[in-house]
């Protein structure tokens, strides 16, 4: 009974990512899309909060949104998974529900 959470805003602009992380359950996936992908970059003021998930939750980013913003995959935090659009669809299908954090 897992949830796919999507976050599409930069965590430096809104609380959406932090709020999302406060409501996830083990087995959930948090997929960062659009400006949300800035939340997956390592060595930022927010990286600790994101890393604090401790592996119970999978963190994923949408690769085309990373690419568009010039973010090399090497700059992502450890353990972050990248997916393409087909991977996004697969994630949506694998989870029981999708919750958007606007």
């Amino acid at each position: 009974m897992a949830t796919l959470h999507t976050v599409n805003k930069s965590p430096f602009e809104t609380q959406a990512l932090l709020s999302c992380l406060g409501h996830t359950k083990a087995g959930d996936t948090v997929l960062l899309i659009e400006d949300g992908v800035y939340g997956a970059v390592g060595n930022t003021a927010l990286a600790d909060a994101v890393a604090g998930l401790g592996g119970a939750v999978t963190l994923a980013v949408l690769a085309p949104d990373l690419k568009a913003r010039g973010i090399d995959e090497g700059r992502l935090m450890d353990g972050v998974k990248t997916v393409d659009y087909a991977g996004f669809v697969e994630l949506a299908a694998e989870h029981d529900r999708t919750q958007a954090w606007l």
């Binding site: 009974m1 949830t3 409501h23 359950k25 529900r97 999708t98 919750q99 958007a100 606007l102």
Partner: peptide
């Protein structure tokens, strides 16, 4: 609240 969310069939966000 996380439990409430996890118990839903459909979640609509605003």
């Amino acid at each position: 609240m996380a439990d409430v969310m996890a118990g839903q069939d459909v979640i609509l966000s605003f």
